[in-house]
Design a protein around this nucleic acid. Structure first.
Lengths: 112, 112
DNA sequence: TATTCTTCCATCGACAGGCGATGGGAGAAA
DNA sequence: TTTCTCCCATCGCCTGTCGATGGAAGAATA
């Protein structure tokens, strides 16, 4: 009770990057993005909807993705998100920052 | 002017881990920890004091470090932090979680 | 001796991001 | 017609980081 399982929480600040990356492959709806992240990470990344949708709003607001309504493969009403040119740039940039940060952290963690 | 340099901000959620790791080598005072992190990361990790001290309070509160006043190498009043046994355990645990998360993220980022 | 510099401590208010809880619509399956 | 699954979204809370700010006290400089 009250025991939060921290080990399956996201690393804060990486969600946008992950979403952009998924959308770089193909346009997709929110629900699908969450599934994709779970699959592609061997079930480690569990993105809740209350994290996902605000993030998508952010991306929309920044012009990194477009959205349009359509029908899912299961014939449900779904909102498909597509990466914009600006989004592609952003992906590159965030990826570089991320790699830089991780390298720096690893360096510290490996300092004997 | 209002332009925040995001590329030198920390990855949120990793600061405790980094501090614990530094203290695992030797007890150290706050200012020294910040320097150490900067050095050991080739100047990438720039921990401000307003991030550092709250973090140290957290660690104290959780019993992961002890603190005692002393004199620094420069003969200044300094508070030395020491890793406790619980802190050592915590370091191991956080490290595992971190590695797991990073591996998962990398997996997503490398999915073609 | 007075001034300035550096080291070292710490807090406050603002802000962003992620989470649990919650609610709902609408097709499919039972 | 009931239940299930898919798919949308928001609200309030909490945690963590940051910029700004303030201060004490030894060292170096003028």
């Amino acid at each position: 009770m009250g025991e939060t399982n921290r080990s399956q929480e996201l690393l804060p600040g990486t969600l946008d990057l992950l979403i952009l990356k998924v959308l770089a492959r193909a346009p997709m709806h929110g629900y699908g993005i969450a599934q994709r992240l779970k699959e592609n990470s061997d079930e480690v990344l569990q993105v809740g909807e209350s994290s996902l949708y605000p993030a998508l709003q952010r991306l929309l607001l920044n012009g990194w993705v477009n959205a349009e309504w359509g029908a899912s493969e299961n014939n449900r009403r779904a909102r498909y998100y597509t990466l914009t040119a600006a989004g592609r740039k952003q992906l590159t940039s965030e990826r570089e920052d991320f790699d830089r940060m991780i390298a720096a952290i690893q360096k510290v963690l490996q300092t004997a």
